[in-house]
Structures are given as structure tokens and as C-alpha cells.
Nucleic acid binder design. Structure first.
Lengths: 339, 339
DNA sequence: ATGAAAGCGCTAACAC
DNA sequence: GTGTTAGCGCTTTCAT
């Protein structure tokens, strides 16, 4: 059915070895130009494609990378990590074996085992949001990188968003629009983004010489209803801020509903800036939400490239996490304060 | 490093053959119970795991399935297809090689070629939403199934949502709540869901003996702003409906904003029911959106199971697409009409 | 009840 | 310039 090296050899009249040599462009082989041509032609006619199982077995390189995601479900925008990874892998002739553990930790071990059984060249361990993780020891069996995640021991190369810097960028945008009373709708999760974005908010205020008001800084559950409550808490005050920086887009969505319930208008009365750029929200909301885009695609690409070079040239760490900037995506939720 | 069959053989004092026999439980082999036990123990001690590349090469079965998605990006809830597929694959000791073409058709051929090079046992071709597709001819090279997609020729087993029936279920829910003036916020795309959901809407109206009003049935772009415009068009009328069935959740989101801009309240003044159950929207919106859940996880599972049995027992079709019901997910956007 | 040998499709030393 | 040979790690006749 599918043509093999042997078929090409027989049909061209040369040995399997010679065929392999020319098809792989093995350097330092003296092969007659005619031979090269003939072999190439025959291979073409037969639509020959190397069997990667056989190739992998022989070369000890499967051309396959294991991608372990803790969840591709809950946070949709995270799929761009996979997209970036896939594109970078394709560039290098590699492919992704995918396992999503969906928060079931017992699937981690099993997934890695399955990867190892298939002789993956390396593994990327991707979290859905910036987290400190403790991957199973079996991850050590192959070169690995962490995405949106890091360990305390820094034993793997890892990429994470720059929480502090990006939060500063967001608040600076509000300052630039003329706001002097800026609130922060924060979250209560025990994750790096919590402290990071809060710190960025405060730093930006300080840099702009703006007052920090404890009452404008509130923490709630990091989803829509939490955002609603947080926004109400801040906006119900007489000295309410004219702009709100939100921990994420879901909270910003809740803030939209709060603003409307108060008879106010987003951008006109209250400027809002989110975080994540979850397009369903940021583009779906009315007016469009200005927000910080998580650099998922870029991290995915970086992950594979880093992994690939690690495979070619193993090294031992420790590795400082590399921080990725979140670009500001301007839409229509930021205006100038009234009066 | 990793233990091989040979290691187990040497350490246990038996031949590779015998070891293979016991580890694979080859039927019809008379092997001493003691031997079995020893071999098993040694394999355990060495943490032996078969090399699937070698196994695959020999058995002509890679234990790997190619998953080609036209886009895992744009429609986040579709990832549940992958989740269902992965779970079903894991059950059968198989794994998914993933390629997402993200609307770049040239990646289809390349992806399939890459699958074939890696000797996948089968391929699932998954669309992001119910579509008529024309997969590249190379798909024929292996058993394949279609998800959320079908071809005119019905050459592959395929699964699609039951658009008509599910729309009827949605409207029936509105009827059950007491509504007699029910509008439809439809879309303008040339896809099966367009005609299907519209037909379901009309059928449900007829079944309930309710009047069909051309003015209550409007078509717009199937995203948030389209939903907003559509809702305004219907709601601005004096004889406005008390309930709205929306083509999808994104349009429903737009409808929420329209209702609010008119000083009305969702559920109280206008009941809304969506389609898709995109959780970011349906759970993020205030009040929560009642909607029809697309059976993505189930279709993913079905796809792999069907594919696996096709691999074991090839057959030729044609195959009638199988239709999956969309379950109703009740939240808080449906109330009884006033007065 | 166990094992030798061939071979899946390929690559890489090492001849000649 | 080209080919022989020996595996990569495994399964599978076929002997014994």
C-alpha cells in the first residue's frame, strides 16, 4: 500500500542504503548526480514518505512532543498556547500529543506515562493560568518546559506573564486618559496574579502621584458575580472612582452590569479596563472592553522552541522564569473623566 | 536507561519470546505458572513498559489517533469535543495527535500527511460548528469520522447536533413558562443551524398553537452586536414579545444589553433563552442564561468509539449522520410573562 | 513449556 | 560511488 524505502530501492535499482542516503541528504557521501536524480524521481512517483515509527525507533527521536494541559476547558483563551505550540512544532517537523487533565491530578501521571511509552522527545507542562506547580517526578524522564507555571526549585525552563508590569501598563492607560480616581477590583485567589496585579496597581498610582484609597481597592471572587459585587461596593460610594481596573475580564463583565444597574454608562461615567482579553467577553461586551492580552500564543511558541533546543543540547538549570509582557488591547471602555 | 524486553529476559533467565508471551497474555500458550510469576515480578522491578514505537511498527498499530480541528480557537466551548475524544481514547489505550488548522485550509493536507507519516490508526475531522465539509481526499487513507460536520456523500460516519429538535425544546420551555408572544433572534450565516433552528422555532410555535409574527423573527450577524440590534428591532415595537429565543449565546448577550438599554429587566420583562451554553457567557451574565447545551463532550466520545470500531472492522458506508440532542440548561433568564 | 529466527521500516558503521 | 551488515524494540510463526 504505502511505499517503503525498499520499494524505492527496487524500482530505482539502487540499494536501500543509497536511497536512504540521498533522501536524507546525508553529508559527506559521494553519490553520482544521476543517481540522486533517479532516486528522487522514483521516490516522487511512488509518493514515498518515511515511516516515522521506524525512523523514530532507529533514531531514538519520535518527532513527537507531549503537551500536558491542566485544563483546556475552563479558560478558553488558553487554547492559544496550544496554537502557538503547534505552529512552532510544525516548523520543526514535530507534532503534539495532547493530554488535558481537566483538574484530575491522577491523569497527570497517566498522561506522562503514555507520553513516555510513545517516546516523546520532550514534554510541555502547561497550566491554564499562572501558577506555582509541583509536577510529578516522572516529568524528569524527558526534557520539559513549564508554561504559565513555575516551580519553586526552578528546575525547568518556564514562561509566565509579567503580572506587575502589565498591571502598571493598564493603570497607566487610565492615568493617561485623565483619571485621578482609579479603583481596583481585585480577587481573593491564592495565585501569583493576585499579588502581582495588585502591586502593579499600587505602583502605577504611586508613579503617577495619585492618592491610594483603601476604599477603592476591593477583593472579591474572580468571576462575573464577584465583579458585580466589587463594583457595587466601590461605585456606591459618594467619592466613587471614575475608572476601574479589574483583575480579569470576567470581573469586568460583572462590573458592566453593576454600572448599568446604577444608571451609569461604561466609558462615559466609568472607564473600565480588564485583564486576559477573553474575546467572547472583551469583544462581546457593549462597549468593547479595553484589556490586557495574555501572551498565550507567544508562550506556546517559546515553549516548543525552548524545549527543542533543550532536546538538542541538554542542560541542567536552574532556570529563571521568563516574563512575558501583556500587550494593551484598546477598545471602547476607556474614556476621559467628566467635568 | 529505560528497561527493554531484553532486559527483562536476561534478568529473569527466560527468552525474549517467552517474556513477550506472558506480558501480552498471548492465548493458547502453555507457560508454567512459576515462569509467569517470575517474569511479571522482574518486569515490575524493572518498571518495564513496552516501547510503543517498536510495538506499533511491528503490529502496524500505533495506538495513536489524529485529531484534526478546523479551529480550537474561535469557539471555546468546542474544546469539550477534544475532552470527550481524549477520555474515550484513553479508555482504549490510545492517544490524540492534535492539529488545529485555525481556518488555514493549507494546514489540512499538511496535518493529515503528518498524521499518516506517524501511522495514526484513524483520524477524526472535527468542525467548530455544524458544517457541510469537503475533507481532502487524503483523509480516505485511513478510517475517519466527522464531528459537528458532514459531507454530502455521507462517506464517513458523522455526528451533528439535532438543530431542529433542540430549537423546539427551547421554545417549548418558553411556552411552558406561559409565554405566548415569542420572538426569534436569528442569524444570517449559510450553515445548517440557520435553517434548522429557525424551523424548530416555527414548528414549536405551530405545535403550541401560537401566532407566528413576521416582525418577531429577525436575522442579524450571529454575535453580540448583531444580537443587540436584533433585540432592539423586536423590542422597540409596541407589540413586543415577552420572550426571545436566540440563535446563540453571543446574540443572547447582545440581547441582554438591549433589554437593559430599554430600561427593562431580563426574566422579569423579557425572558431570554440562548443556544450553545458557552459558559463564560451563560454563567457570566446576570441573571444566568438559560440555554441549550451543545453535546460536544458526547460527540467527542462517540467519535473515538466509532472510529475505533471502524478500525477493527472496516466498513464502507454510506453513513447517516447521527443526531445528538442538546439538553436544556435552566438558569435564571426565563420567567413568566407579566400580567 | 520454551526459544530461535525472521522481520516491521529505517539508519549508520564500515566495507569495497 | 555504492552496498553489506547490524541493529532500534518488539511480535510472531514455527521448531523442539
Amino acid at each position: 500500500m504505502k511505499a517503503t524505502l525498499r520499494d524505492v530501492a527496487e524500482r530505482s535499482g539502487f540499494s536501500i542504503t543509497t536511497v536512504s542516503h540521498v533522501l536524507n541528504d546525508v553529508p559527506g557521501k559521494r553519490i553520482a548526480p544521476d543517481t540522486r536524480e533517479t532516486i528522487r524521481r522514483v521516490a516522487d512517483e511512488l509518493a514515498y514518505r518515511p515511516n516515522q515509527l521506524a525512523q523514530g525507533l532507529r533514531r531514538q527521536r519520535s518527532g513527537t512532543i507531549g503537551f500536558l494541559a491542566d485544563s483546556i476547558l475552563t479558560t478558553p483563551h488558553a487554547h492559544k498556547v496550544i496554537s502557538g505550540a503547534q505552529d512552532a512544532a510544525a516548523e520543526a517537523g514535530s507534532m503534539l500529543l495532547l493530554v488535558s487533565t481537566d483538574g484530575r491530578p491522577e491523569l497527570e501521571e497517566r498522561g506522562i506515562t503514555a507520553f513516555l511509552d510513545r517516546q516523546v522527545d520532550g514534554i510541555v507542562y502547561a497550566a491554564t493560568y499562572h501558577r506555582i506547580v509541583t509536577p510529578p517526578p516522572s516529568l524528569r524522564a524527558r526534557p520539559a518546559v513549564l508554561l504559565d507555571a513555575r516551580t519553586d526549585a526552578a528546575e525547568y525552563p518556564s514562561a509566565v506573564p509579567d503580572e506587575v508590569g502589565s498591571a502598571r501598563t493598564a493603570v497607566a492607560e487610565l492615568v493617561r486618559a485623565g483619571h485621578r480616581r482609579i479603583g481596583y477590583l481585585g480577587n481573593v485567589d491564592d495565585i501569583p496574579a493576585t499579588a502581582g496585579r495588585l502591586a502593579g496597581y499600587r505602583q502605577a498610582l504611586a508613579e503617577a502621584g495619585l492618592p491610594w484609597q483603601p476604599a477603592w481597592e476591593v477583593a472579591e471572587a474572580s468571576e462575573s458575580t464577584g465583579g458585580y459585587r466589587a463594583a457595587r461596593a466601590v461605585l456606591d460610594r459618594p467619592d466613587r472612582p471614575t475608572a476601574l481596573f479589574c483583575f480579569n475580564d470576567r470581573m469586568a463583565l460583572g462590573a458592566y452590569f453593576a454600572v448599568q444597574d446604577l444608571g451609569l454608562a461604561v466609558a462615559l461615567d466609568v472607564s473600565i479596563i480588564g485583564f486576559d482579553d477573553q474575546e467572547i467577553i472583551s469583544e462581546g461586551v457593549h462597549p468593547g472592553l479595553t484589556t490586557m492580552r495574555l501572551p498565550h500564543y507567544e508562550m506556546g511558541q517559546w515553549g516548543i522552541r525552548t524545549l527543542l533546543s533543550l532536546i538538542d543540547a541538554p542542560s541542567d538549570g536552574p532556570y529563571d522564569p521568563v516574563h512575558f509582557d501583556c500587550p494593551l488591547v484598546r477598545r471602547a471602555s476607556v474614556g476621559s473623566p467628566r467635568g
